[in-house]
């Protein structure tokens, strides 16, 4: 074999190896995306089940999943998610993933602040490709999370025509900027995610209301109007939904009993605690229909 032919064969082998590596990487990423997509789908369907009152930690996990999935599918080194507090006109920084994620604490910023603020107020996505080149850009929220990204893509989280938050990806992998395709893909994804976040948030508020009512039973200083305010605030946060109407009527029933006097209140509490204790020991957390009749 001549030296030239040997070089050619070597180059061919190298090319094949590179091609295979690329294919494996592609498959690996696809698998990763599918696993994440599956996990997200599960979380989304869980969030859709209004009857299940989960711990707040699952809400945070849902938000993390949204950012993780978005970053994996689009190819970004870091990401963050903000929710809007409409009453305070502020963005609440909820979760971050990426190199500096562990150092970041939950914080709030006024809506009139940086790219995320603009996206929240305009409802329009935006991509920036040279964010780190200009020190005067330091006002942006990306800097507040202790990270100076080269590129930013921010899209609104929308539920029922309302912007409820902002999903922000930082540093596109393998390119100087996020592409128009990335904007379209992440925009579509954020529309789905917005609905899930809204449902999960409603569920969490419901859990908060019920625990407030039950907690109030042991507290002589809690006034009935406190609970009414709480129920009212909750009702303002949800559209008319039969599932929540049931929960609200349960809450007001408990409140009515509690307001009769100490003995009535303690009896109600004991009854509910006993029932809750029974539910906790059940083998499955299935629906009423399948759960109650089953014995081991």
């Amino acid at each position: 074999m001549s030296a030239g032919a040997e070089d050619g064969a070597l180059a061919e082998a190298r090319a094949t190896i590179a091609q295979q590596a690329e294919e494996i990487e592609r498959l690996r990423r696809r698998l990763g995306e599918e696993r994440l997509a599956e996990e997200l789908r599960d979380a989304l369907s869980l969030a859709g089940t209004a009857a299940v009152i989960a711990a707040p930690v699952s809400h945070t996990r849902l938000l993390e999943l949204i950012v993780e999935t978005a970053a994996a599918v689009i190819g970004a080194r870091a990401g963050a998610l903000f929710l809007i507090d409409e009453a305070a006109q502020e963005l609440i920084f909820e979760v971050a993933i990426g190199p500096k994620a562990a150092e970041v604490k939950k914080f709030r910023v006024p809506l009139g602040h940086g790219i995320a603020g603009l996206v929240a107020v305009s409802g329009q996505p935006m991509a920036v490709s040279d964010a780190s080149n200009d020190p005067r850009q330091a006002a942006d929220i990306a800097r507040d999370v202790g990270y100076a990204p080269g590129s930013i893509l921010a899209v609104p989280l929308v539920a029922e025509e309302r912007v409820i938050g902002v999903l922000e990806l930082l540093d596109k992998e393998g390119a100087a900027s996020f592409s128009p395709d990335d904007i379209a893909t992440l925009g579509l994804f954020a529309q789905q995610a917005g609905v899930a976040v809204e449902q999960s948030g409603t569920r969490r508020r419901l859990a908060g209301l019920l625990s407030g009512v039950l907690g109030g039973l042991g507290d002589r200083t809690a006034s009935p109007s406190d609970l009414q305010d709480r129920a009212g605030a909750f009702a303002d946060g949800v559209e008319v939904d039969p599932a929540y109407e049931d929960a609200l009527s349960l809450a007001s029933l408990v409140q009515e009993i509690a307001s009769q006097g100490d003995r009535e209140r303690m009896a109600c509490r004991a009854l509910l605690e006993g029932f809750a204790g029974y539910l906790r020991t059940r083998p499955t957390a299935g629906s009423w229909g399948t759960g109650l009749g089953e014995a081991r």
Binding site: A127, V128, S129, A131, D134, R136, Q137, S177, P180, I183
Partner: peptide, 20 residues
């Protein structure tokens, strides 16, 4: 409208993408 060098806040410039 894709990767356009535009004026931004506080006398700065950024490269941005959008129909805007």
């Amino acid at each position: 409208g894709i990767d356009v060098r535009v004026a931004w806040q506080g006398g700065s410039w950024i490269t941005a993408t959008g129909n805007s």
